[in-house]
Design a protein around this nucleic acid. Sequence first.
DNA 1: CTGAAAGCGCTTACAG
DNA 2: CTGAAAGCGCTTACAG
Lengths: 338, 338
Amino acid sequence: MAEITIKYLAEKLKMAPSTVSRALNDSYEISQPTKDKVLKLARELNYQPNPYARSLREHKSKTIAVIIPERINNFFSQVIDGIEDVTQQHGFHLLMYNTHEDIQLERKIISYLLNGRVDAIVMSVSSQTSEIDHLETVFSKGLPIIFFDRICPQIPTTQYITNDYESGFKATEHLITRGCSKILFLLLSKEISIGVERLRGYRDALKAHKIVFEDSWIVQCCHEEQDNVEKISMLLQSPQRADGILASVEKLAIATYRAVNKQKLSMPKDIKLVSFSNMKIADLLCPSLTTISQPAYEIGKECAIQLMKKLSRKTQPDLESVTKTFPSIINIRESSGG
Amino acid sequence: MAEITIKYLAEKLKMAPSTVSRALNDSYEISQPTKDKVLKLARELNYQPNPYARSLREHKSKTIAVIIPERINNFFSQVIDGIEDVTQQHGFHLLMYNTHEDIQLERKIISYLLNGRVDAIVMSVSSQTSEIDHLETVFSKGLPIIFFDRICPQIPTTQYITNDYESGFKATEHLITRGCSKILFLLLSKEISIGVERLRGYRDALKAHKIVFEDSWIVQCCHEEQDNVEKISMLLQSPQRADGILASVEKLAIATYRAVNKQKLSMPKDIKLVSFSNMKIADLLCPSLTTISQPAYEIGKECAIQLMKKLSRKTQPDLESVTKTFPSIINIRESSGG
DNA sequence: CTGAAAGCGCTTACAG
DNA sequence: CTGAAAGCGCTTACAG
């Protein structure tokens, strides 16, 4: 790969490299004829600047890291599409990392990003993230970071969530109006921010409807589908089983379907289900799934817009320390009784 | 962000930068005591080498570009998980690009990668990709490139596919044994490689079973769900409508479900469906979907393994010009009559 | 075993 | 308007 460099162009054109560089960057200091000559040759030879030389010199990389806890997930895919659509227009590149919900991996990934590899980070923390010193390091180093969905309220930066408390409340209320009185809340173990808010909404809805809450209704699940199916199956075969389930995450709704089938129960007759989910085919499931869906693409776009705004300014003002809320939508379908 | 550099460490330690660099890289030329001192301080100050300085110097970036035509797609997500799991172990980073099935965007993305930004490319081409000069440029520049699924046979490099001909044949045969005699083949417009192979298998299966093929059975769809639903609906309301559908891509199966519902037809009674799809919840659809699923994660892993093998060698032998085939699995469910 | 020097490909302050 | 020089943070061939 014999690369075309500025030096090479300069030789061919019998100019100084500095002149070529300035012409390429359309500097006001360079005459039009010179610019024309340089551009012409650059195009002919398909000159592409070496991004790393530029990054080293400029101390910026024009790349952004996106860190998510799970890749096979419509919500995150949609968020990333939103991010990419914006950053691409600004000539930014996206470095992508999946933590697999593993805090150790998350720390390691963060450590790779600490020396100029990226100009900013957009991130949804893993469900294991309770200690946050690695995230504090990012912030204290001055590396811009934005959180979405699974946020980190302790870090004073811009964060995007949806109205999780309200959605949890409404979803629970919906189940209650459909006749449920024993409602299980499924969540991932130790899940932060979103789980907490959704849970609060759920509990307050129960309280508002004078349903006496039992501790056993909060069910900590894991990331292994088979384990979750078995756990939920067990719960469903108990004599005083629940009549409603609120799944705080899509994968737990899937596990519920499997458990219901396994126990040969009928949904929504025996058990009703609502889940947070951005699945596009929720309406094609058997029975169709009542979902609370988040405006994922818009969230991604907004993250990127804020970042682009910050990074494009000469004097980069700090990202505002604020948590912005997008509205989720509840789509009532058969799984909850329609 | 005041960065810790080698120069800074060298000053603190009263050594030369070259010594520090060598100690950090565990060079045999450096004494153990010196290494210990350097490593100690580096750890204390949490030194992270500047990746771009190193890339510029070494002419390698330790990053790989992954280019896919669509992000909200289980198949691609699984492939990428496979790629990442391997590359991460080798300290490589992943730059990710979604072409949205747009050849112009694909060309643009490729052009960004031509000057050392990445050490290699893993790619699935867009369905619009008929001209391939941009891919030829990549190859001729000596930038390693591997294709998967939607491959580019004209480029002499390693390519990964599944047994698409065979799967198309078997899927068609399956529909025939379930009583279908008018089988529609849905494909994305001008789709390359995979579409072609699957289509060949389909046609040969018809021929083998002495079914006289009609041109109108090959239906070119697009990327707009609504348009596809309408097109398929139209076809389904014709008096001599098909009794079987083979969807070469998951999104066309989804559109078929919607069209069937819209026309108030019943699947599998009125119409039977088989689709290529890596959807994990195909069994939960109404009716459950008969799928041909590809070993996506394994394909991703294999792409990455080949690349790592190549890139880790001092003398990098060319990627073998060979097309390797992974076996897909047919999962028979209700949509095709069980 | 350690150090001084050159250079990767850029950009920009400084001269002229 | 153009050029020579320095420097971004590394690594390595060359000395000693």
